[in-house]
Design a protein around this nucleic acid. Structure first.
Lengths: 159, 159
DNA sequence: GCTGAAAGCACCACATA
DNA sequence: TATGTGGTGCTTTCAGC
């Protein structure tokens, strides 16, 4: 595994990342034009960024409402195996409706983000999946009423 | 504005969305091959999905560690203007380090997700930005120690 | 690590069913 | 709404610096 602290990104890399973060479908030729370089040089850099796992995925953000996915919830979980163990988190991460799994500081051990069609689907998920994962002692669910902003764009420095 | 409840997606649309959600840089020709259809027909569908705001963005997921962004926090906020008012949420949404802003049920009014370089950048943000937004009564911050899963992929049905 | 050329393809508008 | 065609321009490899 590559030591991520050793990755050095120059001004050109950061510029590529900024453009691709905003539009993953930008053509290699357009990237080259923006940067004033030859397309082949850009292609090489992009491939290296993918290899180094700086670029993790090209993904399409889909409107959850278009798929009638109206329920979004954050669930805090206290677990008996503590944040050191991976078993519980891996079980949770396997569930496709679970978008995020974090170890957190404080009393609760995990925070997960779950998206489903409606409240009954969420209840079903909790009853049939979460409750079967060992070590989960209790859960505290926060229901989202309305989402004002939701994106994963990072703030990428100029240099 | 289009009434989102009226959007009807057929099997082909859902298949396109599934493929593009996993790889936004898939070529139109490859999409057509997967679906066994002519490329021009696919192109038209993709454009309509963009127009109808089913497809919201093509984005590149970048490894936060590669940019030394090691601090992730969830902040619950109680506000005096209540979840009905937009002023506070819009102020929060404008801050680039704030990735998510949700109205939530229960005692606290907002839940926001913030990503910064380190804890001092986060403190700086809270002191210089959050505290200047009116109506925020108090905040409760949850620090993420480790992220096991983080993605926005939706579960897209077959049909 | 970057450039430029060259072959192969993809894109996309348009005509058509 | 889907297909076929064709010109334009993009992608990607490789030699050379």
């Amino acid at each position: 595994m590559i030591n991520e602290t050793e990755i050095v990104l120059d001004k050109t890399d950061l510029h590529i990342l900024r453009l691709m973060q905003d539009n993953a479908r930008i053509s290699n030729a357009d990237l080259a034009r923006e940067l004033g370089m030859a397309p082949s040089g850009i292609l090489e850099r992009v491939k290296k960024l993918e290899q180094k796992n700086v670029i993790q995925q090209y993904t399409t953000r889909i409107n959850p409402n278009a798929l009638q996915q109206k329920m979004l919830a954050f669930i805090f979980m206290k677990a008996s195996d503590g944040p050191g163990s991976d078993q519980t988190t891996l079980e949770l991460a396997k569930i496709p409706e679970v978008q995020e799994v974090h170890h957190i500081a404080g009393d609760d051990c995990y925070l997960i983000k779950v998206r489903t069609y409606d409240s009954s689907t969420l209840m079903h998920l909790m009853r049939n999946h979460f409750s079967k994962i060992p070590h989960i002692l209790n859960t505290r669910t926060t229901i989202v009423l309305e989402t004002v902003k939701e994106q994963q764009q990072l703030v990428i420095p100029e240099k």
